[in-house]
């Protein structure tokens, strides 16, 4: 399985990362190294085996519907880079 520089760019965009053109080739190579390792797994014959998204044989872990206080307003905002009107201030949303 091979990915192109174009796909790496797309993934960077989805992840909100700026990858300089000069580093694009090295990232593409590294991506492909990782994917070729995963290729080894692809060779295993899995006919008739159900997908295993969960490793534990547990289902139905529920919590009762009871409201409890969370963290204080001050604590919630204490790590925010900027605060405005009691909220987390973020840069403009639209381009």
């Amino acid at each position: 399985m091979k990915v192109s520089a174009e796909e790496v760019k797309h993934i960077a965009q989805l992840s909100r990362l700026t990858v300089p053109e000069t580093e694009m080739q090295i990232f593409t190579e590294q991506f492909n190294q990782i994917l070729s390792y995963a290729d080894i797994m692809q060779k295993v014959d899995t006919t008739g085996i159900e997908p295993t998204p969960y490793v534990l044989p547990i289902t139905n872990a529920f919590r009762e519907d009871i409201a409890k206080p969370g963290v204080s307003h001050e604590a919630a905002l204490s790590n925010a880079p900027a605060v405005e009107n009691d909220g987390f201030k973020v840069p403009r949303v639209l381009e």
Binding site: R63, I66, G70, V71, A76
Partner: peptide, 27 residues
Amino acid sequence: KTKSKAFCSCSTEFGGTPNTHVCPVCL
């Protein structure tokens, strides 16, 4: 119309001062 949120125990009450019904899970 539950009393608490889907994946944590914070209140679902509408309105109120922003960021007062929050916890590490929903933050």
